[in-house]
Every structure is written in structure tokens, then in C-alpha cells.
Design a protein around this nucleic acid. Sequence first.
DNA 1: ATCTTATTTTGATTTAAATCAAATTAGAGT
DNA 2: ACTCTAATTTGATTTAAATCAAAATAAGAT
Lengths: 247, 247
Amino acid sequence: MPPDSLITKKLKSNIKASCSSCGLRELCLPVGLDEQEAGTLDHLVSQRHKIWRGEHLHRAGLDFHSLHVVRTGFFKTYVLQEDGREQVTGFHMPGEVLGLDAISADTHTCNAVALEDSEVCEIPFAKLEGIGRTIPSLMHHFHKIMSREIVRDRGMLLLGGMKAGERLVAFLLNLSHRFAKRGYSPLEFNLRMTREEIGSYLGLKLETISRAFSRLQEDGFINVNNKHIRLNDIDHLRRQYGNSSCE
Amino acid sequence: MPPDSLITKKLKSNIKASCSSCGLRELCLPVGLDEQEAGTLDHLVSQRHKIWRGEHLHRAGLDFHSLHVVRTGFFKTYVLQEDGREQVTGFHMPGEVLGLDAISADTHTCNAVALEDSEVCEIPFAKLEGIGRTIPSLMHHFHKIMSREIVRDRGMLLLGGMKAGERLVAFLLNLSHRFAKRGYSPLEFNLRMTREEIGSYLGLKLETISRAFSRLQEDGFINVNNKHIRLNDIDHLRRQYGNSSCE
DNA sequence: ATCTTATTTTGATTTAAATCAAATTAGAGT
DNA sequence: ACTCTAATTTGATTTAAATCAAAATAAGAT
């Protein structure tokens, strides 16, 4: 085979997906499917898409027809308020599903942008509902995923009564937990988002986030080096700040 | 038929449900089903339950097997934090589904308590998934309901940047909108919850809620008489405070 | 109805976070 | 490597909401 054609194929932005051989199977939709069923999924997840840093996966107001699972990279979702302010609604890492909000009205309710070069698997929603009818465990798992999203979002409400430092710790513990599930260190990681984006998500201003970071470092709980974070005493953080680390 | 037996039947706390003749059909799960399909639902929604004011429908940590649709009345959901504080996670009126959060881990993640004498329809979740397989439109509508819940919860994040008065208005507009959909006045209604519960839900203290009410009345936007609220200029409120009135 | 408890309102004060401002540092693009 | 822009840190000040406190009102229970 001429190497050129191979390269060309690999560089194409739409790549044939393969659930059956995907490393994300334990986190993604196919969880718990047997081999034959996972094979069926290879038809479901028709394509992979490369989304470059700064590129949008979808925008609020656009028609919805596919969910997307993050395969590699990191996404932010946000909405623009009437006054033009950007409100961050979530951060999304490999294995997490984007677009669940759009099912409600067949329209995307938020914008999704890649915070680093990323890949997503496209799942046409109509196909998912169709195949789900023949693979009940797939449908059931999908329901769990939607439900988990509800739990996760509702968890944000719990930040209501917390002060800045506590919110930030809760946020870091949550990231830590999600990194751990993906095989990365729960103690040391790089933030993909800015202080302003964290602030928007947590309902705080960027200066407050910066001060909270400084304070947590002063107190020895964490080490901050720009975007690089190290949690020095994660158990103490969990005890001190409550255990909203789980999704 | 002896009238006695009829009465006895009606007073039982578990009442045979009938979706096909229910006034809530336009809001509830059976939306858009034809007559035969709605008939099938009468098997799905096995029972109605009376829940007295102050009684719990479910508690966090308990096993999940059924969703519940509010038929009459009003519910509050909440979680207890480690420090014993109660965090309100939502208010729920007729036609709204309770328990969607519990699908995720087959365990309820919150407590649900009736704020007035209420009735709910019980929907065993396994049955719903089963019947959904034969009635795709039912399954699809269920997905929309779950998705709407995600949108609704995420909408709470948008309160992040607002101040007390704005949050309260957003809350009132949201209630107004939901009352209107149920055929009640969008301009005048009775709150079922206390200032403290509103505050908990909005991330504010009860004194702040009280002051915000007073201020809105001073400014002529609303009339407050204890739990009775009248919105004097709803369009102005919508313009001034943004339109987070929709679910 | 009356008593008792829970809820609400309002005021005075404190506190945490927002805002305003400026210097510093990091990072993307060439 | 260099430039320019974006992001971060830190300080000073203001502001909104929390807290503390007490009185007034409403709602349940008997």
C-alpha cells in the first residue's frame, strides 16, 4: 500500500470509528455490551471528528441530530447571556457525552468549544433510539448517563452555600476524581481553562479565583504553578471541604 | 353498586390510575400517544398514591424502582449536607416527574417531600423501559423529559452572575410560566414554600429573600402578601431581569 | 378561640466578594 | 527569539449579602 494514501486517510477529519477496540469503552456508551452488541455500535457511531482547539462542536440554536462523545481532548460548554456575558455551563473530558441538553427541543441550548485539539465520536440520536430498542442494556445505560448528568448539574446547586475557597476546592476535587477515572493522576494535573472560565462556572470573578488559589497554596493545601495544580493533601481537602468530588 | 364500597375504594390511598382520562396528558409522559397507546399506559402507571403534606415520597439513599409524576399538589426536593444544612434542589408541580436523578445509580439522591396534600402516579421504571421498546414515541418523549430536566438544572447556573433581586424575579417568572402552562394565572399565585426554602434554592439567606420581596414591592413591580404574589408588570420584569422564565 | 411555635420583616453591623486599577507573567503567532 | 496580546496576580476600595438581633405576624394544634 502506498504510504501516501495511508497518510491522507489519517489526516482526514472524519475517521471511521470503532467502538469494539476503543480504550474508552468502560466510560462510554458501550459499557457492559458483549462483543456482538459492541459490533452493532460500530454502525451507530458512524464517524469520528477532529475538532481543533478553539473550534466549535455546536452552537446554541442550531438543529440537533447527534450526540457526541469526547474521545480525546477537552471541551467547554457555555451560553451567551443577553448582555453578552459568557456563562460557562460545563467542562467535558474523554468519555463524556455532549448534546444531552439538545434532545429536549431538538435544538442545541449551548455552545461547545474545544479547549485543546480534540476528537469526538458522533452518535446520530435517531440511530441510538433505534438500536436501543434492540439492545435494552444499551438503552438502559443511556438512561443512566442522562440521569448522571442531572445529578451532576444538580450538584452545582450545592455550591450555593459555600464560599469561594470551598467552591474552588470542590471544583478541583471533581476534576481530580474525573482524571483518576481516566487513568490520570488525581493529585497532579493541568487545567485546560482560564481563571475567568472557572469563575464563570462557579459563579465567581476571576480575581476571586486567583486569590482563592493563592490562599490555598499559602495554607499548603495545594501547589499552583499557573495551570499546573498539585493537591498536597487530598484527604484533608475532602474532609475540610466536603466530598463533592464525585459526579 | 352499593355506594359504600365505592367510597371505600376512593378513600384508599392507592387508587387505580387512568392515563387515558387524565387531565394532565398534555404535560405528562403520555404526550402525543394515540388512544391505544395511552391505554397501554394504564398498565404502566400502576397506581396513584396520596402523599399528605409533610410526608416523604422518597428519601436519599433508598433503592430506586419507580418514577413518580405529580398529579396534584406540590413537592420540594432537597439534600442534607454533612453539616446538617438542608439544600433545596427543586420544587415540583403537577405533570412533573420525580426520581430522574435516581436512575443513575439505582438509588435516590435526594429527598422528596409534599409541601401540600398531593397525589402522584407511580411509574415502575423497568416497565417504562419495557413498554418504551414497543412504543418508540413514548421512549422518545421520555428522553425529552430527561433532557428538559438537564436544561432546567443547568439554567440554575445562569443565576450565578445575578444579584438577589434578579434571582428572585427569575424564580417568580419561572413559577409564573409553569403555573400558566397548567391553566393557572401567571400573574397571581400562592407560594407553597417558605422564604428559607426559596433562599436555599437560590443560594441566598431568608432575610435576603424577604428584603428582595419588600424591595420589589416598594418599586411597584410586585405585590406581596405573605405567600400570595401578584406580578404587576410581568413584561417589564421579563425585560428588566431577563427571560429565564421558561423551563 | 387560644396558645404555641414557626415564619417573616426590619434594623444594625460585619464580612466576603465585586470592582477598580496596575503591574507582572505567560503564551500564541510570526 | 521576539512581539504582542491575553491571562494572572496583587492591592485598595466599594458593595451586596450574611450575620446578629429583636419585634411582628401568621399558622397549627388543642
